[in-house]
């Protein structure tokens, strides 16, 4: 930083960037909740036709990237149910 920099106020852009990143991560998560809720119900129904699962053991998440959104589905199936299905 030059000597003139000492008299300057601190740059504000880095702060803007950080606040936006935190805020948008939060807003994106809540904006896609509708879709997540619908998918969750329907996926649960499909799986439940074949194996018995606990509805709390189904986790769904959507992440947005440049070219694609990634839908993460995480379903925990009890051992007993897998044996029964096999």
């Amino acid at each position: 930083m030059s000597i003139f920099g000492l008299f300057r106020k601190q740059q504000s852009a880095p702060m803007a960037r950080e606040r936006l990143q935190v805020l948008l991560a939060h807003e994106r998560a809540s904006a896609s909740t509708d879709l997540v809720a619908v998918l969750r119900e329907e996926i649960l129904a499909v799986i439940a036709r074949h194996v018995e699962i606990d509805s709390d053991k189904v986790h769904i998440k959507i992440d947005r990237d440049e070219n694609v959104s990634i839908l993460e589905i995480d379903v925990e199936i009890p051992l007993a149910a897998t044996a029964q299905a096999a």
Binding site: R8, Q11, S12, A13, P14, A16, Q21, R64
Partner: peptide, 20 residues
Amino acid sequence: RAERGDMLKVDDVLEILSIP
């Protein structure tokens, strides 16, 4: 303003919005 660091940089906006 960008030079002074008081405006979001092009890269910042691109990274946050992630569209070309």
